[in-house]
């Protein structure tokens, strides 16, 4: 783990002043996007962008484990999927009126379901994290992958909730006062949740907790020597990361009205990792940029040729070889660590 990347978020970079305005420009563009899309008759863009926003939440959540905690998790798709299934199962029971396991009432309320998704993923992350953190380095990467695979096969075999075919929901979860069936409304709901999440993660990065994790990343032994319970802090980072990923999974389930084990396939964990690395691990906006760039590139290439992977593959290799530190650190005089 000592090699895991992540620059000190507190370090003042010698970047030009205009960089401070970039997030604002980005926000304005995001707010304008659905209206522009409608004006140009490209309303599919709104749902594409919604997908990007949701994955940005997941990537940003993974970043808390990865960039802040220095934990390379190759199993975050598990939390993404668990969050999605939590929403899917609650919604199914909410629609049928039959309580889950005979006593847990179902629900079709968006806020309730997302809270449940976050709690359930947090608990699962807590269990997996407690076990996985006994290892470090490559074994940590692999044990997180192993747990994700176990959950993947569990949901594949879970016939009661569709098994491999997944679980479809009749309608999107509701939020009183808003028409969630409308794609633009849903887009802004997702955007709001993303912004809230980014706010939380920015607070985390700059909190005492974040600073301690930064110290642990740089020298675990030194932090232990001064009496910091390093494993507990890493575990907490892992759990928070799982909570955010579960939130994204739950939101994706509502958006697509569909959950399937495919959401926890190991390639999904890989894609989340790619988003974070591409955008810049350890930065606030990096994972968001990474999610937009990767999904954008995939969509563009797939629309262009059926052999899109032959271009995306080398593009990823090139990015790994050339951009150290990710998109978010471009234009800074100081490069990633």
């Amino acid at each position: 783990m000592d090699k895991a990347r992540g620059s000190d978020p507190m370090k003042k970079s010698g970047s030009p002043r205009w960089r401070g305005f970039l997030p604002l420009v980005g926000l304005v563009l995001l707010v304008a996007l659905p209206f522009a899309a409608q004006a140009f008759g490209q309303s599919a863009l709104t749902s594409l962008a919604t997908r990007m926003l949701i994955l940005a939440i997941a990537a940003s959540a993974l970043n808390i484990a990865l960039g802040l905690g220095g934990l390379v998790s190759f199993g975050h798709a598990a939390f993404y999927g668990v969050g999605a299934y939590a929403v899917g199962i609650l919604t199914t029971h909410g629609a049928s009126g039959m309580p889950f396991l005979g006593f847990v009432p179902g629900s079709e309320h968006l806020a309730v379901n997302l809270l449940v998704a976050m709690s359930v993923s947090g608990i699962v992350a807590g269990l997996i994290g407690a076990l996985a953190l006994r290892t470090s380095g490559v074994p940590f990467i692999m044990i997180t992958l192993a747990f994700a695979q176990m959950l993947f096969f569990f949901f594949v075999a879970l016939k009661a909730y569709g098994g491999d075919d997944g679980l479809s929901m009749r309608r999107r979860n509701a939020l009183p006062g808003l028409n969630m069936r409308d794609d633009v409304t849903f887009y802004f709901t997702s955007l709001t949740i993303l912004l809230a999440w980014l706010g939380v993660s920015a607070r985390l990065f700059h909190s005492r907790f974040g600073l301690l994790l930064g110290g642990i990343r740089q020298s675990e032994r030194r932090m232990q020597a001064i009496g910091v319970p390093t494993v507990r802090y890493r575990w907490l980072a892992f759990v928070l990361s799982g909570v955010g990923t579960g939130l994204a999974g739950g939101l994706m389930a509502v958006f697509g009205r569909f959950v399937s084990p495919d959401m926890m396939h190991w390639t999904q964990s890989g894609e989340l990792l790619i988003m974070v690395v591409l955008g810049g691990a350890g930065t606030i906006f990096g994972p968001v940029l990474g999610a937009f760039a990767l999904i954008g590139l995939e969509t563009l290439l797939a629309g262009w040729t059926e052999h899109w992977q032959i271009i995306l593959g080398p593009a990823l290799v090139l990015m790994a070889l050339t951009f150290r530190g990710g998109l978010a650190r471009l234009g800074r005089s100081e490069q990633g660590p």
Partner: peptide
């Protein structure tokens, strides 16, 4: 590819070799 990754962290290695998987799978299809 791999030669350039020795000094890098595991994340870059995962990213680059994941890209190679996509490339080889599609190359075989072609």
């Amino acid at each position: 590819v791999v030669r350039r990754l020795y000094a890098r962290d595991h994340l870059d290695q995962v990213l680059a070799t994941f890209g190679l998987i996509l490339f080889f799978n599609q190359l075989v299809v072609l």
